[in-house]
Design a protein around this nucleic acid. Structure first.
Lengths: 218, 218
DNA sequence: TCTCTAAGTCAGCGACTGCTTACATACCCG
DNA sequence: CGGGTATGTAAGCAGTCGCTGACTTAGAGA
């Protein structure tokens, strides 16, 4: 690799211009443009990281002029913040409160599904956005809040109660589960380490189930 | 954050010019200079990532002229590769073969120690170097090899045998343990998420021990 | 049809990037 | 002491970065 002339696609081969559900971008629609930018940015930021992603790449992926990033999101940081906020929202709605107060089984199943294949159409790589930092204070705050909120939801499903100090250890255990989840996604996607990289749902579900169950019930 | 004028210290406040064991850099010592550069670079790369780290930062941290990076390591990529190789070596010697073929207890203890406080003087953050990519093919190969070698060592301690296919699942389980380890370090150091961020050895050792034991013996 | 505004385009600035080149200095050996 | 080489320094080049301001164009309301 000579100089910093890597141009594009450090790890991933470029998202092929977005083949999502968005109906052909025709004409002038500010809201659609914003959405296209966020979608392209999330992918890039999650896979390549903040600094390695250039606004020109994002704009190209979204099929949009570069200057519009600054028009709609003020700055690259602003766009990153929007991405973080959206990931936060999605994670919140996807992990809606379990039907029963302590329905750890269903939650564990959903966790595993998240690692192997995200419930929405998108890949688990999006989760890695939670580990990326832009150095922007506000975005970092959103990220931390998201992770802590996720922790509490998970812990609650396992019986954690904010008013009952004896259940406090469940918080830490929930975070260990999250750490495992994120670690596995990292090893699979980012590092491509075998054999976990090419392991399917069936191979992963067993050990992960056992692991999570021990964490919450053992 | 205006423009890209962040100069230095995105996440970390700068390593304060290295207060390590290295005896005062006096005069001209190529080997010492090389070591100083690698030490400073490892810290930066591990905490801030490859792209966010500039060669000028590294040189300043090491108290050395920027041009020497190119003299001794050819390029920024070359320096990164040297960092990766050194991390690979350290991890290899630190996790030397257990006394007995299947001495999983001792290995688990060492894993936990790695997460909370690395055995050598350096912080666990160094582990994150294993998750960083520069886009350089060679460095990525070293990284993948290191992780897979680490996997096999860990699995071997749990009874894995390359010649016995029935022990193959232990490889995957060892990698789940590694994923957990890396994930916890991420959450603690990089994201600073509570409560795991400020949890001490005693609070973490229990659940982690239980988790690893389940993974290998359950 | 005309007009006004929102949406999108374009060229380029200043800052910073990794790296090179030409030069200065300290150390070793005869 | 005097060269010769290894080590370190200073200045700057070419390229990329995020971002800006002036511009054009599409589309809805009168």
């Amino acid at each position: 690799m000579s100089n910093q002339t890597e141009s594009s696609a450090e790890i991933t081969p470029a998202p092929a211009h977005e083949a999502d559900d968005e109906p052909i971008r025709s004409g002038r629609d500010a809201e659609a443009t914003r959405r296209a930018l966020v979608r392209a940015a999330r992918r890039r930021f999650a896979t390549d990281g903040y600094r390695a992603t250039t606004v020109r790449q994002i704009a190209a992926d979204a099929g949009v002029n570069v200057a519009l990033i600054n028009r709609y999101f003020v700055s690259k940081d602003g766009l990153f913040e929007a991405c973080m906020a959206r990931t936060s929202d999605e994670l919140d709605t996807q992990t809606e409160a379990p039907t029963r107060p302590t329905d750890i089984d269903g939650v564990i199943d959903r966790l595993i599904a998240h690692v192997v294949n995200a419930p929405n159409g998108d890949d688990p790589l999006q989760l890695l956005l939670l580990l990326r930092s832009s150095g922007d204070e506000n975005a970092d705050r959103i990220r931390r809040n998201t992770l802590e909120h996720f922790t509490e939801k998970l812990a609650a499903a396992a019986g954690w109660n904010a008013d009952d100090p004896t259940t406090a250890p469940l918080l830490l255990r929930a975070q260990l589960a999250i750490a495992t989840m994120l670690g596995v996604v990292m090893l699979r996607a980012s590092a491509g380490v075998e054999p976990v990289a090419s392991a399917g749902h069936d191979e992963l579900a067993g050990p992960l189930n056992q692991l999570f169950r021990t964490l919450f019930e053992g």
